[in-house]
Design a protein around this nucleic acid. Structure first.
Length: 197
DNA sequence: AACATGATTCGCT
DNA sequence: GCGAATCATGTTG
C-alpha cells in the first residue's frame, strides 16, 4: 500500500487509542482500532461505493455503523477527507464507566471481554443502526471523549481482511488484555515469506 | 431472482 | 486453536 494521503487515517487511528468513547451510558477507553483508507484501500468498504458505505463519502467525524455477518454491528469513525472516504474501525476497549450496564448488555462474560472485538464493543455500547451518521463530537450520548491515556502503540495486519491482508493498519495498546485476538482471513493469500532462504 | 461472501463470534476438541 | 453458524449486503444472471 502506498504512503501518501492515507497517512491521515493512520495518524487519526493511532491517536484514538487511549481516548474514551461513550455509547448510551457506557464509556470505554479504546485499546484497539484499524485504519481503512477508503477509495485507495482494497480492504475498505469504500473501495467500491455502495449504499451501505455511502456515509463514508460524507463529512468526517460521523459514525459508520454496519451489520457484519448478518448479526453483529461494527462501528467506525469517518475521518475523511471526503474524496478519500477513509474511516477508523473501533475494535476493542476497556470499560471504565457504566460497567453494570455493559455487563447486562453482554451477558455472562469476563470483564476484559465486555468490549473485546468490534461486534462485542458495539453491543456493550448499546449501538444500533440508528446511530449511523451520528457526529462523534457532539454530546448526543454517543461519541469520542478526551484522551485519558497515552499508550504504547503496537501495529500489525488487520483482522479478517482478504485484500491488502499484510498492510499493518491495526493498532492496539501494548499488553492490554482487552485487545482481541488476531485472526487472519482464511481466504487471504499466504503472508509474505518471513525467513530469507 | 438466485448466489457468494464476509472489517465475527461462540462453542467444542 | 479450529470450525461452523447465520443473514444482510453486494454481485451476477
Amino acid at each position: 500500500m502506498g504512503d501518501l494521503e492515507e497517512g491521515g487515517v493512520v495518524e487519526r487511528a493511532r491517536a484514538l487509542l487511549g481516548r474514551t468513547f461513550t455509547g448510551h451510558g457506557v464509556t470505554v477507553v479504546l485499546t484497539e482500532v484499524e485504519a481503512y483508507g477508503g477509495v485507495e484501500d482494497p480492504a475498505s468498504h469504500a473501495f467500491t461505493r455502495t449504499p451501505r458505505s455511502e456515509i463514508m463519502y460524507g463529512p468526517p467525524g460521523r459514525l459508520y455503523v454496519y451489520r457484519s455477518y448478518g448479526i453483529h454491528l461494527c462501528a467506525n469513525v469517518v475521518t475523511g477527507p471526503t474524496e478519500l472516504a477513509a474511516a477508523v474501525l473501533l475494535r476493542a476497549g476497556r470499560v471504565v464507566d457504566g460497567l453494570g450496564l455493559a455487563r447486562s448488555r453482554r451477558g455472562d462474560v469476563d470483564d476484559v471481554r465486555l468490549a473485546r472485538g468490534p461486534g462485542n464493543l458495539a453491543q456493550a455500547l448499546g449501538l444500533t443502526i440508528a446511530d449511523l451518521g451520528t457526529p462523534v463530537t457532539t454530546g448526543s450520548g454517543v461519541g469520542l471523549g478526551e484522551r485519558v491515556e497515552t499508550p504504547e502503540v503496537v501495529a500489525g495486519p488487520r483482522v479478517g481482511v482478504t485484500r491488502a491482508a499484510d498492510v499493518p493498519w491495526r493498532f492496539w495498546t501494548a499488553g492490554d488484555p482487552t485487545v482481541s485476538a488476531y485472526r487472519r482471513s482464511p481466504r487471504a493469500p499466504r503472508a509474505t515469506a518471513r525467513r530469507p532462504q
